[in-house]
Design a protein around this nucleic acid. Structure first.
Length: 423
RNA sequence: GGAGAGGUGGCCGAGAGGCUGAAGGCAACCGCCUGCUAAGCGGUUGUAGGGGUAAAACUCUACCGAGGGUUCGAAUCCCUCCCUCUCCGCCA
Protein backbone atom coordinates (compact mmCIF):
# COMPACT_ATOMS: atom_id res chain seq x y z
CA UNK A 1 0.00 0.00 0.00
CA UNK A 2 1.19 3.46 -0.79
CA UNK A 3 1.04 6.35 1.64
CA UNK A 4 -2.26 8.12 0.99
CA UNK A 5 -0.62 11.43 1.79
CA UNK A 6 1.97 10.82 -0.88
CA UNK A 7 -0.72 10.21 -3.47
CA UNK A 8 -2.42 13.42 -2.35
CA UNK A 9 0.68 15.58 -2.26
CA UNK A 10 2.69 14.25 -5.16
CA UNK A 11 0.37 12.54 -7.62
CA UNK A 12 2.80 12.99 -10.49
CA UNK A 13 5.48 10.99 -8.77
CA UNK A 14 2.98 8.21 -8.16
CA UNK A 15 1.81 8.38 -11.75
CA UNK A 16 5.36 8.11 -13.06
CA UNK A 17 6.27 5.24 -10.72
CA UNK A 18 3.25 3.20 -11.69
CA UNK A 19 3.90 3.84 -15.36
CA UNK A 20 7.48 2.64 -14.93
CA UNK A 21 6.06 -0.65 -13.69
CA UNK A 22 3.82 -0.86 -16.70
CA UNK A 23 0.71 -0.82 -14.50
CA UNK A 24 -2.43 1.26 -14.70
CA UNK A 25 -4.31 3.13 -12.04
CA UNK A 26 -7.11 5.71 -12.17
CA UNK A 27 -5.27 8.23 -10.09
CA UNK A 28 -7.63 11.10 -10.75
CA UNK A 29 -10.64 9.05 -9.79
CA UNK A 30 -8.92 8.13 -6.58
CA UNK A 31 -8.07 11.74 -5.77
CA UNK A 32 -11.70 12.69 -6.28
CA UNK A 33 -12.81 10.00 -3.87
CA UNK A 34 -10.23 11.23 -1.40
CA UNK A 35 -11.54 14.77 -1.59
CA UNK A 36 -15.10 13.58 -1.14
CA UNK A 37 -14.04 11.50 1.81
CA UNK A 38 -12.44 14.45 3.55
CA UNK A 39 -15.47 16.65 2.98
CA UNK A 40 -17.71 14.03 4.53
CA UNK A 41 -15.32 13.60 7.42
CA UNK A 42 -15.37 17.27 8.25
CA UNK A 43 -19.14 17.45 8.11
CA UNK A 44 -19.76 14.43 10.29
CA UNK A 45 -17.10 15.44 12.78
CA UNK A 46 -18.62 18.89 13.20
CA UNK A 47 -22.01 17.29 13.82
CA UNK A 48 -20.52 14.86 16.29
CA UNK A 49 -18.89 17.72 18.12
CA UNK A 50 -22.27 19.41 18.37
CA UNK A 51 -23.88 16.21 19.58
CA UNK A 52 -21.24 15.70 22.24
CA UNK A 53 -21.69 19.18 23.70
CA UNK A 54 -25.49 19.09 23.57
CA UNK A 55 -25.52 15.70 25.23
CA UNK A 56 -23.66 17.24 28.12
CA UNK A 57 -26.22 20.04 28.25
CA UNK A 58 -29.07 17.56 28.28
CA UNK A 59 -27.54 15.69 31.15
CA UNK A 60 -27.05 18.89 33.15
CA UNK A 61 -30.47 20.34 32.37
CA UNK A 62 -32.17 17.12 33.36
CA UNK A 63 -30.55 17.26 36.76
CA UNK A 64 -31.68 20.83 37.17
CA UNK A 65 -35.19 19.84 36.16
CA UNK A 66 -35.19 21.91 32.95
CA UNK A 67 -37.03 21.16 29.73
CA UNK A 68 -34.93 19.19 27.28
CA UNK A 69 -37.53 18.17 24.73
CA UNK A 70 -36.41 20.72 22.11
CA UNK A 71 -32.81 19.60 22.42
CA UNK A 72 -33.81 15.95 22.21
CA UNK A 73 -35.72 16.61 19.01
CA UNK A 74 -32.78 18.47 17.49
CA UNK A 75 -30.36 15.76 18.46
CA UNK A 76 -32.56 13.09 17.02
CA UNK A 77 -32.24 14.82 13.66
CA UNK A 78 -28.55 15.42 14.10
CA UNK A 79 -27.95 11.76 14.86
CA UNK A 80 -29.96 10.72 11.85
CA UNK A 81 -27.85 12.97 9.65
CA UNK A 82 -24.65 11.64 11.16
CA UNK A 83 -25.81 8.15 10.37
CA UNK A 84 -26.39 9.08 6.75
CA UNK A 85 -23.02 10.70 6.33
CA UNK A 86 -21.20 7.90 8.11
CA UNK A 87 -22.79 5.37 5.79
CA UNK A 88 -21.55 7.21 2.73
CA UNK A 89 -18.20 7.77 4.39
CA UNK A 90 -17.84 4.08 5.06
CA UNK A 91 -18.68 3.21 1.50
CA UNK A 92 -16.23 5.77 0.16
CA UNK A 93 -13.50 4.58 2.48
CA UNK A 94 -14.08 0.97 1.45
CA UNK A 95 -13.89 1.84 -2.20
CA UNK A 96 -10.64 3.68 -1.60
CA UNK A 97 -9.18 0.78 0.31
CA UNK A 98 -10.13 -1.65 -2.42
CA UNK A 99 -8.37 0.52 -4.96
CA UNK A 100 -5.34 1.01 -2.73
CA UNK A 101 -4.88 -2.74 -2.39
CA UNK A 102 -4.53 -3.07 -6.15
CA UNK A 103 -2.02 -0.26 -6.62
CA UNK A 104 1.53 -1.62 -6.96
CA UNK A 105 4.53 -0.35 -5.08
CA UNK A 106 6.64 2.34 -6.73
CA UNK A 107 10.08 1.39 -8.03
CA UNK A 108 13.10 2.83 -6.23
CA UNK A 109 14.85 5.62 -8.12
CA UNK A 110 17.82 3.35 -8.88
CA UNK A 111 15.70 0.76 -10.67
CA UNK A 112 16.70 0.53 -14.33
CA UNK A 113 14.03 1.44 -16.86
CA UNK A 114 12.74 -1.27 -19.11
CA UNK A 115 9.73 -3.03 -20.51
CA UNK A 116 10.65 -6.71 -20.30
CA UNK A 117 13.13 -9.22 -18.95
CA UNK A 118 15.61 -8.39 -21.73
CA UNK A 119 16.13 -5.02 -20.09
CA UNK A 120 17.37 -6.51 -16.82
CA UNK A 121 21.07 -5.72 -16.52
CA UNK A 122 23.52 -8.28 -15.19
CA UNK A 123 25.14 -6.68 -12.17
CA UNK A 124 27.39 -9.44 -10.92
CA UNK A 125 28.85 -12.73 -12.09
CA UNK A 126 30.46 -15.38 -9.94
CA UNK A 127 33.09 -16.21 -12.54
CA UNK A 128 33.51 -18.08 -15.78
CA UNK A 129 31.20 -20.99 -16.42
CA UNK A 130 33.17 -24.24 -16.41
CA UNK A 131 32.88 -26.04 -19.76
CA UNK A 132 31.97 -29.70 -19.57
CA UNK A 133 34.25 -31.82 -21.81
CA UNK A 134 31.29 -33.81 -23.10
CA UNK A 135 27.71 -33.23 -24.17
CA UNK A 136 25.84 -32.41 -20.93
CA UNK A 137 22.54 -34.13 -20.23
CA UNK A 138 19.50 -32.34 -18.81
CA UNK A 139 18.72 -33.05 -15.18
CA UNK A 140 15.56 -35.03 -15.93
CA UNK A 141 17.58 -37.58 -17.87
CA UNK A 142 20.28 -37.76 -15.22
CA UNK A 143 17.69 -37.96 -12.48
CA UNK A 144 15.68 -40.71 -14.12
CA UNK A 145 18.82 -42.72 -14.92
CA UNK A 146 20.04 -42.49 -11.34
CA UNK A 147 16.57 -43.30 -10.06
CA UNK A 148 16.47 -40.18 -7.88
CA UNK A 149 13.76 -38.35 -9.81
CA UNK A 150 10.38 -39.76 -10.87
CA UNK A 151 8.35 -37.33 -12.91
CA UNK A 152 5.80 -39.94 -13.97
CA UNK A 153 5.02 -40.78 -10.38
CA UNK A 154 4.47 -37.11 -9.61
CA UNK A 155 2.13 -36.74 -12.57
CA UNK A 156 0.25 -39.87 -11.58
CA UNK A 157 -0.28 -38.70 -8.01
CA UNK A 158 -1.10 -35.06 -8.58
CA UNK A 159 -0.78 -34.15 -12.23
CA UNK A 160 1.71 -32.36 -14.39
CA UNK A 161 4.07 -30.14 -12.44
CA UNK A 162 4.45 -32.35 -9.42
CA UNK A 163 7.61 -34.33 -8.87
CA UNK A 164 8.67 -37.27 -6.76
CA UNK A 165 12.21 -37.46 -5.44
CA UNK A 166 13.45 -40.89 -4.58
CA UNK A 167 16.29 -42.32 -2.53
CA UNK A 168 19.39 -40.15 -2.82
CA UNK A 169 17.30 -37.51 -4.61
CA UNK A 170 15.13 -37.06 -1.55
CA UNK A 171 18.21 -37.21 0.69
CA UNK A 172 19.96 -34.62 -1.45
CA UNK A 173 16.99 -32.31 -1.07
CA UNK A 174 16.96 -32.78 2.68
CA UNK A 175 20.73 -32.22 2.87
CA UNK A 176 20.44 -29.03 0.83
CA UNK A 177 17.71 -27.65 3.08
CA UNK A 178 19.81 -28.35 6.14
CA UNK A 179 22.90 -26.74 4.62
CA UNK A 180 20.98 -23.63 3.63
CA UNK A 181 19.32 -23.23 7.01
CA UNK A 182 22.66 -23.66 8.75
CA UNK A 183 24.29 -21.04 6.54
CA UNK A 184 21.52 -18.56 7.26
CA UNK A 185 21.56 -19.28 10.95
CA UNK A 186 25.25 -18.42 10.94
CA UNK A 187 24.33 -15.20 9.13
CA UNK A 188 22.07 -14.26 12.03
CA UNK A 189 18.66 -15.43 10.90
CA UNK A 190 16.35 -17.05 13.42
CA UNK A 191 14.96 -20.31 12.12
CA UNK A 192 11.21 -20.82 12.10
CA UNK A 193 8.83 -23.63 11.29
CA UNK A 194 5.59 -22.03 10.18
CA UNK A 195 2.10 -22.96 8.94
CA UNK A 196 1.77 -23.82 5.26
CA UNK A 197 -1.84 -22.67 5.26
CA UNK A 198 -2.62 -19.05 6.00
CA UNK A 199 -5.70 -16.82 6.17
CA UNK A 200 -6.64 -14.10 3.71
CA UNK A 201 -5.33 -11.32 5.88
CA UNK A 202 -1.81 -12.70 5.75
CA UNK A 203 -1.97 -12.93 1.97
CA UNK A 204 -3.19 -9.35 1.74
CA UNK A 205 -0.46 -8.26 4.13
CA UNK A 206 2.37 -9.35 1.89
CA UNK A 207 0.60 -8.35 -1.32
CA UNK A 208 -0.37 -11.68 -2.95
CA UNK A 209 -4.02 -10.74 -2.55
CA UNK A 210 -6.20 -9.40 -3.97
CA UNK A 211 -4.36 -9.27 -7.29
CA UNK A 212 -2.79 -12.72 -7.52
CA UNK A 213 -5.59 -14.88 -6.14
CA UNK A 214 -5.73 -16.91 -9.36
CA UNK A 215 -2.18 -18.11 -8.82
CA UNK A 216 -2.88 -19.42 -5.33
CA UNK A 217 -4.20 -22.72 -4.09
CA UNK A 218 -7.18 -22.21 -1.84
CA UNK A 219 -8.79 -24.58 0.65
CA UNK A 220 -12.29 -23.26 0.29
CA UNK A 221 -13.89 -24.98 3.26
CA UNK A 222 -11.70 -23.07 5.63
CA UNK A 223 -10.81 -20.13 3.42
CA UNK A 224 -7.13 -20.89 3.86
CA UNK A 225 -4.47 -20.47 1.21
CA UNK A 226 -1.50 -22.74 0.64
CA UNK A 227 1.50 -20.48 0.93
CA UNK A 228 3.27 -19.59 -2.33
CA UNK A 229 6.40 -18.78 -0.32
CA UNK A 230 7.48 -18.67 3.33
CA UNK A 231 7.61 -14.91 2.88
CA UNK A 232 3.90 -14.86 3.71
CA UNK A 233 3.88 -16.53 7.12
CA UNK A 234 7.27 -15.08 8.07
CA UNK A 235 6.57 -11.46 7.19
CA UNK A 236 3.16 -11.68 8.83
CA UNK A 237 4.67 -12.87 12.09
CA UNK A 238 4.85 -9.24 13.14
CA UNK A 239 1.57 -8.10 11.66
CA UNK A 240 0.13 -5.31 13.80
CA UNK A 241 3.24 -5.14 15.96
CA UNK A 242 5.26 -2.18 17.10
CA UNK A 243 8.84 -3.40 17.22
CA UNK A 244 11.66 -2.08 19.37
CA UNK A 245 13.91 -0.09 17.02
CA UNK A 246 17.02 -1.26 18.86
CA UNK A 247 16.30 -4.83 17.78
CA UNK A 248 16.34 -4.06 14.04
CA UNK A 249 17.25 -5.56 11.70
CA UNK A 250 15.29 -8.63 12.73
CA UNK A 251 16.13 -11.66 10.61
CA UNK A 252 14.13 -14.82 10.09
CA UNK A 253 14.48 -17.89 7.93
CA UNK A 254 12.31 -20.91 7.24
CA UNK A 255 12.15 -23.96 5.04
CA UNK A 256 8.69 -24.56 3.62
CA UNK A 257 7.08 -26.07 0.60
CA UNK A 258 5.72 -23.45 -1.79
CA UNK A 259 2.52 -23.95 -3.72
CA UNK A 260 1.89 -22.19 -6.99
CA UNK A 261 -0.83 -22.82 -9.51
CA UNK A 262 1.27 -21.20 -12.23
CA UNK A 263 -1.95 -20.42 -14.05
CA UNK A 264 -1.30 -19.37 -17.60
CA UNK A 265 2.27 -20.62 -17.73
CA UNK A 266 1.50 -23.85 -19.56
CA UNK A 267 4.00 -24.69 -22.26
CA UNK A 268 6.76 -22.67 -20.62
CA UNK A 269 9.59 -24.37 -18.77
CA UNK A 270 7.49 -27.47 -18.44
CA UNK A 271 10.26 -30.00 -18.49
CA UNK A 272 11.84 -31.55 -15.48
CA UNK A 273 11.92 -29.66 -12.21
CA UNK A 274 12.17 -26.15 -13.57
CA UNK A 275 8.61 -25.04 -13.01
CA UNK A 276 6.54 -27.10 -10.61
CA UNK A 277 3.43 -26.53 -8.55
CA UNK A 278 5.02 -27.55 -5.30
CA UNK A 279 8.62 -27.07 -4.31
CA UNK A 280 10.72 -26.59 -1.21
CA UNK A 281 12.40 -23.29 -0.61
CA UNK A 282 14.41 -21.71 2.17
CA UNK A 283 13.40 -18.11 2.61
CA UNK A 284 14.98 -15.19 4.45
CA UNK A 285 13.09 -12.16 5.73
CA UNK A 286 14.46 -8.94 7.22
CA UNK A 287 12.62 -6.19 9.08
CA UNK A 288 14.65 -3.04 9.11
CA UNK A 289 14.66 0.76 9.20
CA UNK A 290 13.92 3.00 6.20
CA UNK A 291 17.39 4.51 6.19
CA UNK A 292 19.21 1.19 6.12
CA UNK A 293 16.95 -0.98 4.00
CA UNK A 294 18.97 -0.65 0.81
CA UNK A 295 22.12 -1.68 2.64
CA UNK A 296 20.10 -4.57 3.99
CA UNK A 297 19.15 -5.54 0.47
CA UNK A 298 22.82 -5.86 -0.49
CA UNK A 299 23.49 -7.94 2.62
CA UNK A 300 20.50 -10.13 1.87
CA UNK A 301 21.72 -10.66 -1.65
CA UNK A 302 25.12 -11.66 -0.31
CA UNK A 303 23.49 -14.05 2.16
CA UNK A 304 21.75 -15.79 -0.72
CA UNK A 305 24.85 -15.88 -2.93
CA UNK A 306 26.76 -17.49 -0.07
CA UNK A 307 24.72 -20.64 -0.60
CA UNK A 308 25.69 -20.87 -4.25
CA UNK A 309 29.30 -20.20 -3.34
CA UNK A 310 29.15 -23.05 -0.86
CA UNK A 311 27.69 -25.30 -3.52
CA UNK A 312 30.34 -24.20 -6.05
CA UNK A 313 27.66 -23.38 -8.59
CA UNK A 314 28.27 -20.57 -11.09
CA UNK A 315 25.72 -17.79 -10.95
CA UNK A 316 24.97 -14.28 -12.01
CA UNK A 317 22.91 -11.52 -10.44
CA UNK A 318 20.53 -9.47 -12.50
CA UNK A 319 18.68 -6.38 -11.46
CA UNK A 320 15.03 -6.26 -12.43
CA UNK A 321 13.89 -3.34 -14.53
CA UNK A 322 10.71 -1.46 -13.70
CA UNK A 323 8.35 -3.53 -15.78
CA UNK A 324 9.72 -6.82 -14.42
CA UNK A 325 9.37 -5.86 -10.76
CA UNK A 326 6.70 -7.71 -8.83
CA UNK A 327 3.62 -5.98 -7.48
CA UNK A 328 4.99 -5.33 -3.99
CA UNK A 329 8.68 -4.80 -4.69
CA UNK A 330 10.49 -1.46 -4.88
CA UNK A 331 13.73 -3.06 -6.01
CA UNK A 332 14.71 -6.61 -6.75
CA UNK A 333 17.72 -8.71 -7.66
CA UNK A 334 17.37 -12.17 -9.15
CA UNK A 335 20.10 -14.74 -8.80
CA UNK A 336 20.40 -17.21 -11.64
CA UNK A 337 22.50 -20.28 -11.88
CA UNK A 338 23.71 -21.87 -15.08
CA UNK A 339 22.04 -25.02 -16.31
CA UNK A 340 24.27 -26.65 -18.95
CA UNK A 341 21.73 -29.37 -19.68
CA UNK A 342 18.93 -26.94 -20.41
CA UNK A 343 21.33 -24.35 -21.78
CA UNK A 344 19.78 -21.54 -19.80
CA UNK A 345 20.17 -19.45 -16.70
CA UNK A 346 17.68 -20.52 -14.04
CA UNK A 347 16.35 -18.18 -11.39
CA UNK A 348 17.00 -19.66 -7.96
CA UNK A 349 16.54 -16.60 -5.81
CA UNK A 350 14.77 -13.30 -5.80
CA UNK A 351 15.90 -10.69 -3.27
CA UNK A 352 13.59 -7.74 -2.84
CA UNK A 353 13.14 -4.60 -0.83
CA UNK A 354 9.48 -3.80 -0.30
CA UNK A 355 10.21 -0.62 1.63
CA UNK A 356 7.11 0.16 3.71
CA UNK A 357 4.65 -1.30 1.20
CA UNK A 358 4.04 -4.54 3.07
CA UNK A 359 4.45 -2.86 6.44
CA UNK A 360 1.58 -0.52 5.64
CA UNK A 361 -0.64 -3.37 4.56
CA UNK A 362 0.14 -5.44 7.61
CA UNK A 363 0.65 -2.63 10.11
CA UNK A 364 4.24 -3.50 10.99
CA UNK A 365 5.92 -0.62 12.78
CA UNK A 366 8.84 0.20 15.04
CA UNK A 367 9.70 2.81 17.63
CA UNK A 368 13.09 4.49 17.70
CA UNK A 369 13.00 4.96 21.45
CA UNK A 370 10.70 5.42 24.42
CA UNK A 371 8.03 7.95 23.56
CA UNK A 372 8.92 8.19 19.87
CA UNK A 373 6.16 7.92 17.29
CA UNK A 374 5.79 4.55 15.65
CA UNK A 375 7.06 4.37 12.06
CA UNK A 376 6.60 1.73 9.42
CA UNK A 377 9.47 -0.73 9.07
CA UNK A 378 10.92 -1.73 5.75
CA UNK A 379 10.56 -5.39 4.90
CA UNK A 380 12.83 -7.43 2.65
CA UNK A 381 12.96 -11.02 1.64
CA UNK A 382 15.00 -13.32 -0.49
CA UNK A 383 15.14 -16.97 -1.37
CA UNK A 384 18.08 -18.78 -0.01
CA UNK A 385 17.38 -20.83 -2.16
CA UNK A 386 14.63 -22.56 -4.13
CA UNK A 387 15.49 -26.25 -4.09
CA UNK A 388 14.40 -27.91 -7.34
CA UNK A 389 16.41 -25.74 -9.68
CA UNK A 390 19.42 -26.05 -7.41
CA UNK A 391 19.07 -29.81 -7.49
CA UNK A 392 18.74 -29.62 -11.26
CA UNK A 393 21.91 -27.59 -11.69
CA UNK A 394 23.85 -29.73 -9.24
CA UNK A 395 22.93 -32.78 -11.29
CA UNK A 396 23.86 -31.06 -14.54
CA UNK A 397 27.01 -29.20 -13.48
CA UNK A 398 28.45 -32.11 -11.55
CA UNK A 399 27.62 -34.90 -13.98
CA UNK A 400 30.49 -37.09 -15.12
CA UNK A 401 30.99 -39.00 -18.39
CA UNK A 402 30.34 -42.25 -16.52
CA UNK A 403 26.91 -41.07 -15.36
CA UNK A 404 27.80 -40.41 -11.73
CA UNK A 405 27.14 -37.04 -10.15
CA UNK A 406 29.69 -35.49 -7.82
CA UNK A 407 28.25 -34.08 -4.62
CA UNK A 408 29.53 -30.59 -3.70
CA UNK A 409 32.01 -30.69 -0.80
CA UNK A 410 29.82 -28.61 1.50
CA UNK A 411 27.03 -31.14 1.16
CA UNK A 412 29.08 -34.27 1.74
CA UNK A 413 28.85 -34.11 5.56
CA UNK A 414 25.09 -33.73 5.27
CA UNK A 415 24.98 -36.97 3.28
CA UNK A 416 26.96 -39.03 5.71
CA UNK A 417 30.21 -38.69 3.79
CA UNK A 418 28.77 -39.75 0.45
CA UNK A 419 30.69 -38.12 -2.43
CA UNK A 420 28.79 -39.31 -5.49
CA UNK A 421 25.29 -40.09 -6.60
CA UNK A 422 25.34 -43.27 -8.60
CA UNK A 423 22.84 -45.73 -9.91
C1' G B 1 -17.83 -30.56 17.56
C1' G B 2 -20.64 -29.62 22.74
C1' A B 3 -20.78 -26.81 27.69
C1' G B 4 -18.96 -22.80 30.60
C1' A B 5 -15.62 -18.33 31.63
C1' G B 6 -13.38 -14.22 29.63
C1' G B 7 -11.26 -10.34 26.02
C1' U B 8 -10.42 -2.59 28.93
C1' G B 9 -3.92 1.59 27.87
C1' G B 10 3.28 -1.13 27.54
C1' C B 11 1.53 -4.74 31.63
C1' C B 12 -1.97 -5.79 35.92
C1' G B 13 -6.74 -4.17 37.04
C1' A B 14 -11.49 -1.09 38.33
C1' G B 15 -15.78 0.72 35.89
C1' A B 16 -22.19 -1.87 34.88
C1' G B 17 -26.00 4.26 30.31
C1' G B 18 -23.98 11.00 30.72
C1' C B 19 -19.12 14.00 35.32
C1' U B 20 -14.37 7.97 31.82
C1' G B 21 -9.29 8.63 27.10
C1' A B 22 -10.77 5.83 30.91
C1' A B 23 -9.74 5.13 38.81
C1' G B 24 -5.73 2.46 41.28
C1' G B 25 -1.18 -0.16 40.74
C1' C B 26 3.24 -1.56 37.96
C1' A B 27 6.66 -0.09 34.23
C1' A B 28 9.19 3.73 31.41
C1' C B 29 10.91 8.80 30.88
C1' C B 30 12.15 13.83 33.06
C1' G B 31 13.30 16.61 37.41
C1' C B 32 14.28 17.02 42.84
C1' C B 33 16.40 14.79 47.07
C1' U B 34 19.74 11.27 49.32
C1' G B 35 27.91 11.45 49.57
C1' C B 36 27.30 4.65 46.60
C1' U B 37 22.97 1.21 45.98
C1' A B 38 17.96 1.06 47.48
C1' A B 39 14.08 4.04 49.02
C1' G B 40 11.40 8.92 48.82
C1' C B 41 8.99 13.39 46.37
C1' G B 42 6.94 16.04 41.96
C1' G B 43 5.79 15.77 36.84
C1' U B 44 5.24 13.31 32.06
C1' U B 45 3.92 9.05 29.06
C1' G B 46 -1.61 5.57 23.84
C1' U B 47 -3.08 5.08 18.54
C1' A B 48 -5.32 6.68 14.01
C1' G B 49 -7.58 10.35 11.05
C1' G B 50 -9.19 15.49 9.80
C1' G B 51 -8.39 20.84 10.27
C1' G B 52 -4.40 24.19 11.30
C1' U B 53 1.11 25.66 10.91
C1' A B 54 7.05 26.92 7.28
C1' A B 55 7.39 23.41 11.21
C1' A B 56 5.29 23.48 15.94
C1' A B 57 1.64 25.13 19.20
C1' C B 58 -3.38 24.39 18.95
C1' U B 59 -8.04 22.02 17.77
C1' C B 60 -11.83 18.40 16.38
C1' U B 61 -13.31 13.23 15.67
C1' A B 62 -12.78 8.12 16.50
C1' C B 63 -10.85 4.00 19.27
C1' C B 64 -12.26 -0.40 25.99
C1' G B 65 -11.52 -7.92 20.65
C1' A B 66 -14.33 -6.89 15.42
C1' G B 67 -18.91 -5.51 13.08
C1' G B 68 -24.00 -4.08 13.48
C1' G B 69 -28.33 -2.33 16.63
C1' U B 70 -31.06 0.46 20.70
C1' U B 71 -30.57 5.67 22.70
C1' C B 72 -30.39 12.73 22.60
C1' G B 73 -26.00 10.06 24.66
C1' A B 74 -22.79 3.24 24.94
C1' A B 75 -16.54 0.55 27.57
C1' U B 76 -21.40 -0.11 30.08
C1' C B 77 -27.82 -2.67 27.17
C1' C B 78 -29.06 -6.15 22.60
C1' C B 79 -27.44 -9.20 18.17
C1' U B 80 -23.56 -11.50 15.01
C1' C B 81 -18.60 -12.92 14.41
C1' C B 82 -13.42 -13.68 16.01
C1' C B 83 -9.85 -15.00 19.68
C1' U B 84 -8.11 -16.96 24.59
C1' C B 85 -8.86 -20.19 28.88
C1' U B 86 -11.36 -24.54 31.46
C1' C B 87 -14.20 -29.10 31.03
C1' C B 88 -16.26 -33.03 27.70
C1' G B 89 -16.05 -35.55 22.94
C1' C B 90 -13.07 -36.89 18.56
C1' C B 91 -8.21 -37.61 16.40
C1' A B 92 -2.48 -37.93 14.59
Amino acid sequence: MLDRKLIRKDPERVRAGIAAKGARFDLDGFLLLDERMRDLLQETEALKHRRNTVSQDISRLKKEGGDVSALLAEMKQTSARIKEIDAELKETEERMQQIELTVPNLPHRTVPPGTCAKDNPVVRESGPIPELPFQPLPHWEIGETLGVLDLDAGAMLSGRGFVVLRGDGARLSRALSALMLDIHRDQGYLEYAVPYLVGREAMVGTGQLPKMEEDMYLCEKDDLFLIPTAEVPLTNLYRGAILDGDLLPIRATALTPCFRREAGSYGQDTRGMIRVHQFDKVEMVRWTTPETSYDDLEVLLGDACAVLDALELPYRVIELCGADLSFSAAKCYDIETWSPGVGRWLEVSSCSNFEDFQARRGGIRFRRGAGARPEFVHTLNGSGLALPRVIATILEMNQTPTGKVRIPKALVPYLGGQEYLEA
